[in-house]
Structure formats: C-alpha cells, structure tokens
C-alpha cells in the first residue's frame, strides 16, 4: 500500500477520534459543533485520499467531498440558529442545563 494513502487515512482516523472526544466531552453547544466539524473533516480527508490514490480518473470522488462540505455548512447554520434560540430562551448554551428541547 502507498505510504501517502496510509498517512492520509491515519490523519483522517486521528481527526475523527479527536472530534468524537470533543463532541462527547464538551458541555457548550458551540464546542460540541466544533467536535462534529472535526469528525466531518476526518471523513473528508479519507474521501480525498480514496479519490487521489484509488480512482483519480473518476471525478465522482470529488463530488462526495463537496457533499460533505455542504453538510458542514448546514450543520453550522442550523446549529447557530438553535444556539441563538436557546440563548434567548435560557441565557446560556450550556447543554448540561438542556434537559428538554422545549424553547
């Protein structure tokens, strides 16, 4: 196996692991979103590596990366919308205080 592909996959795995740690351990909604962003970044590295080292002639691989970028943007938009609503209702975005989804 190519060392470049292995390096990229290990980077993706490490980013995914750090992202899971962040998403599970943080109590603030914005920090949790940062963890999710890192997990998606890990997935994106893998997709680019698979396209580059396994199927460089098939542009559908790059298409998948664009979809993941779209998911990242949507996650940010909706997440910040929820954060504003929550901050307005309760004065904080600490998720330990959010035992119910009611606004």
């Amino acid at each position: 196996m190519s060392i470049d592909l292995l390096l990229a996959l290990i980077t993706g795995a490490a980013l995914f692991g750090v992202g899971i740690y962040g998403a599970l351990s943080q109590t603030n909604l914005v920090m949790i979103m940062m963890g999710v962003e890192l997990m998606l970044a890990g997935a994106m590295v893998n997709l680019v590596a698979f396209w580059r080292y396994l199927h460089p002639d098939n542009p559908a691989g790059q298409m998948f990366v664009l979809i993941v970028m779209t998911v990242m943007a949507i996650e940010m938009a909706v997440g910040f919308g929820v954060a504003i609503a929550r901050f307005r209702a309760k004065g904080s975005v600490e998720m330990e205080e959010a035992v119910e989804l009611k606004g």
Partner: peptide, 13 residues
C-alpha cells in the same frame, strides 16, 4: 469521551 475517541481512532487505523 477519551475512551470513545481512542477506540474509534484505533478501529479506523
């Protein structure tokens, strides 16, 4: 959280 992160990293590697 740390365990989940390490397990997912090791599994993916």
């Amino acid at each position: 959280s740390l365990s989940a992160g390490i397990v997912s990293f090791v599994a993916a590697v």
